[in-house]
Simulated scan of single mutants.
Amino acid sequence: MTLNNLKSPKGAHKNIKRIGRGQGSGQGTQAGKGHKGQKARAGGGVRTGFEGGNMPLYMRLPKKGFSNAPFKTEYAEVSLAQLEAKFDGGEVTREALIEKGLLSGINKRRPIKVLANGELKTALTFVNIDKFSKAAAEAVEKAGGKISND
């Protein structure tokens, strides 16, 4: 097989319907557009949602409510179980969490929240961690750790 004898497989290429090319083609005269009217004209037709002069549905329906979704604060979540596995004492800071692989990607920039999944037996000092769940804060205090926001 060479470039000069390449062929498409049978049925791979179908001729396009050439409309408006005379009566003999079977698609002459109105070329599939019917008789006159807005949709038969060049560039004719109505815009999306147009209802022939009626008030369109999208304008009849009430516009209500407010969504705070674009403005909500997304937190990078770290559980007590993860901290217990990676830290054996010392300070827990953003840099330490990144270094231990608990924060990656966009979470490196997000505010951090500590959640109470798992148990904490190690006394850890948390520095500049944004939020703690109630149970997580209690678990840190119970393990002899401290939460400081300097």
Rank of each mutant, 00 (worst) to 15 (best):
E119S: 15
A69W: 11
Q38V: 10
K142Q: 15
L97V: 08
K142D: 14
E95V: 03
L97S: 07
Q38H: 06
A143C: 12
K63Y: 13
S104T: 11
L61F: 07
E95N: 15
L83V: 03
A81H: 04
Y75N: 03
E95H: 05
G145P: 10
K108G: 08
S67H: 10
K10L: 11
L61M: 13
N68E: 11
D150Y: 09
D88P: 00
E138N: 15
R47N: 06
A85L: 09
L6Q: 12
S133G: 05
G118Q: 06
I129H: 00
A31W: 05
M1P: 05
Q30I: 04
H35F: 12
T73C: 09
F71E: 12
M59W: 01
Q30Y: 10
G43F: 07
N54S: 03
L83K: 14
G144Q: 09
E51Y: 02
L80Y: 03
R21G: 02
P9Y: 04
L120D: 12
E84G: 05
G24Q: 05
S25N: 02
A69S: 11
E51V: 12
E91F: 04
Y58T: 03
T93R: 07
G101Y: 13
A40E: 02
E74F: 10
G90D: 00
R21K: 10
K14R: 14
A123P: 13
F71V: 13
S8D: 01
R60M: 01
T93M: 10
V46A: 05
V114K: 01
R109Q: 15
S67K: 15
A139W: 11
N15Y: 14
A123C: 14
N5M: 03
K142V: 15
G32I: 03
F132L: 08
E141L: 11
N107M: 13
T2N: 04
A85P: 04
I106R: 14
N128G: 04
P56M: 00
G32L: 03
A137V: 12
G26Y: 13
K36N: 12
N15L: 13
V127R: 09
A69T: 15
G105F: 09
R110P: 03
N68Y: 14
P70S: 14
G22D: 12
F66M: 08
K14E: 01
